[in-house]
Design a protein around this nucleic acid. Structure first.
Lengths: 355, 355
DNA sequence: ATGAAAGCGCTAACAA
DNA sequence: TTGTTAGCGCTTTCAT
């Protein structure tokens, strides 16, 4: 019955076990330094008192918090949920706990949050951060930083490989006969956006597809709404959206406007609200390709063709890298996980069809 | 140029300002106890050195961490994203930082996480926790607890008011002529589930609607898939799903099976994969009602009729309650926010129609 | 209004 | 193998 209202300290355990506090500390942290029998007794007493070392005191003397921070642009964006889950799941079985923060896609908020976190953690995982290189360097000088989807010489970064997915997407669309397509771009200062655009551009050039740039749009469903109308005016037959949310927004708006997706020409059914006739290759509808493979992408009607990203591998790699940097005893993460694990790939579903 | 590699301590500031450490501490924490001019000088020196009090040391002496924990069943469930965001947004402007954890809808994990968190926080916000009353009491005895969507005598709880929404849903469905409906239940030990069922049951009884219980199903999209087939076998004309995810799963599966939603009878088009004919009132299709109003509910085709929950008000109230309990100086949260703010309401969209 | 000193709970030299 | 001692950086009596 150790129902003491106030928490047991290391001294309470020590005196109950008839040893000094240092011995208790050793029994707990460096078992090999203490006599087996003594250790057993200490552990038993600790157990009996429900002893839990005071973390503030440990942090103070050790100079480490055993917390890690995780900053993402938007929790509500379904792309980040599995990322967060992956990181949390990884650290669940370690001595580390994780602080999560959401920047609301705002760079200033991101900087403020990073600065607030630095005080309370041993390391910071920055997922797709938008802050400047200078800022990043400032943060990295104060704590251990691991980057996901952002390059930098300042800190190790785990990156997806967009090339295969984007290439497959263009090949697919090309095979369906599309020759003039649009890219709906996302945040201008985002590494992901630049990557997507780059590989898309290269693959299109290679295959003789004309690529029109539209945007930037906010990387959400609402952004896709706005994009949809601009797409209709751009005289293309297929669009590559920055991500699934935008793609879904486009799909929804297009459906509402009566534009068929993908382009199965509906004879005699012109596009309402789009009075200019004579625009070639358009009344046939549009094909749409997203990126991310968020859960809802497979639930729409028609389901979305999209470039899937191995988020779980990404988050696990980021977490493992951080862990190995903070705790030399940790299972050391390979400097970079096998490229194949981080490769994107095309998932062909219902929103792409022949011109 | 105070580019010192090692962080400035309170002593560094003290000696730079020519005062004692206690004065620096007072200048920072109890301005009224120190001479205005001295204070100005101290603050300037602190600024110059980029001084940031060591949190571990403060925690140790103060006995408070200035962290709060937040535990939710599933980050990936779009219902919780705004909740989390609300809590994070609230604490963003306070001295508190928040730890987030995801239980994966698992009670054992929930308990473990709560116990791990207790060590590192001053208070714990438990969103829709499933742990037993006994466990809850154990946790609450170790730290300040605020509950969201879970009743308890142990700790203050913020609850949504499901009555109006459920009542409106039943009235709506009744007006459309439905007389035999199903409830697709969620987690058995969830307060939300019991509430939904209760008000649904009462409203149906009142209006002479027969309510069939199905499930429980896991509260996700996949759960709805399984539910859909059982619904078809249950000979009902409308279903109330535990939440939107389940509703969307049902919708998707039904669409795939060729069952029209809502029930606009498609003449001469029988339900494939459902060989038994002669079942009355079914080939006409089904009406579906969800709960939550997650973002994707408005994006499907047809968009989902659902009972919307004011999550932002809920999370804000929970955060404010916690804040006022931890910090007497905080804007004191009303014991309970105005009921109207927490009331659910029906959003009629496309998945409900006449029998 | 300010300084000196004690101590929060723990770990790690150093001694024994 | 174990105990003694000295701090980690801060706040807070208690003096002055």
């Amino acid at each position: 019955m150790s129902t003491d209202s106030t928490r047991a300290s290391i001294r309470a355990v020590a005196s109950l076990a008839g040893v000094s506090p240092s011995t208790v500390s050793r029994a707990l942290n460096s078992p090999e330094l203490v006599n087996a029998e003594t250790r057993r007794r200490v552990l038993e007493c600790a157990e009996r008192l429900g002893y839990q070392p005071n973390r503030a005191a440990q942090s103070l003397v050790l100079g480490r918090t055993r917390n890690v921070g995780l900053i993402v642009p938007d929790i509500a964006n379904p792309f980040f949920a599995p990322f967060i889950k992956g990181v949390e799941a990884y650290f669940r079985d370690t001595e580390f706990a994780v602080f999560l923060a959401d920047t609301d896609e705002d760079t200033a908020t991101e900087v403020r949050l990073a600065e607030a976190m630095v005080e309370r953690v041993d390391g910071l995982i920055l997922c797709a951060p938008r802050m400047s290189g200078t800022r990043l360097r400032a943060v990295a000088s104060k704590t251990t930083v691991v980057l996901a989807n952002r390059t930098s010489r300042t800190a190790p970064s785990i990156l997806q490989d967009f090339q295969p997915g984007m290439d497959q997407a263009v090949a697919h669309v090309h095979a369906l006969g599309h020759r003039r397509c649009a890219y709906l771009s996302g945040p201008a200062n985002s590494w992901s956006n630049r990557q997507r655009r780059k590989f898309l551009g290269a693959a299109c050039a290679e295959r003789g597809i004309e690529l029109v740039d539209l945007g930037p749009y906010e990387p959400r469903f609402a952004g896709g709404f706005r994009a949809a109308d601009e797409v209709l005016a751009a005289d293309v037959t297929a669009v590559f959206a920055y991500n699934d949310l935008v793609a879904l927004g486009v799909l929804s708006r297009l459906t509402a406007r009566g534009v068929p997706v993908p382009g199965k020409p509906v004879p005699g059914k012109p596009v309402p609200g789009k009075p200019e006739p004579g625009v070639p290759g358009e009344s046939g509808g549009l094909s749409i390709v997203g990126v991310d493979d968020v859960p809802m992408a497979s639930m729409t009607n028609p389901p979305l063709t999209t470039v899937a990203i191995p988020v779980a591998a990404l988050s696990r790699a980021a977490a493992a890298t951080m862990h190995s940097m903070l705790d030399p005893g940790a299972p050391k993460a390979p400097p970079l996980p096998p490229a194949a694990e981080l490769a994107t790939r095309l998932l062909i579903r219902g929103t792409t069809g022949p011109v």
